[in-house]
Amino acid sequence: MAGATNSEIEGVDVVRRPALAATVPDALEADGYILGTPANIGYMSGALKVFFDLIYYPCLDSTRARPYGLYVHGNEGTEGAIRAVESITTGLSWAKAAEPVNVLGTPSKADLEACWELGATVAASLME
């Protein structure tokens, strides 16, 4: 959130929704997405999967080429979670604004900075 709401990024309104609260209208109204998930047994969280299940077909044609960013946190299996999200976002034809932030174990200062950069990159991509 801090990176996406950086004061140097103008004209971008950031709306935060938990995955289980996000709706099809939320996804359709958004110009870009920052997705976050824990890695659960080598996969994205059930909540993020439910979000994708709900919005996939209603948003398939209307959200093509929208930028997104992804951060994943876990002790192991983060690669599977990243692969699953990238598979779905590829199907949606969303544009990856930055490489995923993959956080293993306790987040370090560098991990937190990478997440800040991720948010700033996605938000800045909307200014163009």
Rank of each mutant, 00 (worst) to 15 (best):
G42P: 05
A114F: 09
E128M: 07
A123V: 02
Y57A: 06
V103Y: 04
L54K: 14
G46D: 07
A114D: 12
S62N: 04
K96Y: 00
L126T: 05
P25E: 08
H73L: 14
S62L: 06
E113N: 09
D53N: 14
L20H: 02
A2G: 02
K49H: 04
A124I: 00
C115R: 13
Y56W: 01
I34S: 07
A19C: 14
D61K: 12
V12A: 09
P100D: 10
E79A: 15
V24R: 01
L92P: 11
L20W: 00
E8S: 14
N75W: 12
D53V: 02
A39M: 05
I34V: 15
S62E: 13
S45P: 02
V15S: 07
V14E: 03
E117A: 15
P67F: 08
N6P: 07
E117N: 14
D53A: 03
P107D: 06
S62M: 03
P100T: 09
G74L: 11
L28K: 14
V103M: 10
L54D: 08
L48D: 08
Y56M: 02
C115W: 01
G46K: 09
P38V: 02
A123C: 01
I34R: 08
I82Q: 08
T89Q: 06
A81N: 04
L48T: 11
S125A: 13
Y68S: 07
P107F: 05
A124M: 03
L70C: 02
Y57H: 13
S125Y: 00
S87F: 13
P100I: 09
Y68V: 07
G42R: 06
N40D: 11
Y33A: 05
K96M: 11
V50M: 08
G77D: 06
G74V: 09
P25Q: 11
P58C: 13
P107K: 05
A110Q: 15
I41T: 13
L112T: 06
L126P: 10
L70Q: 04
T78K: 14
I41L: 14
V15R: 11
A47F: 05
A39V: 05
A30R: 12
A110H: 07
R64Q: 15
E99S: 13
G80F: 12
C115D: 05
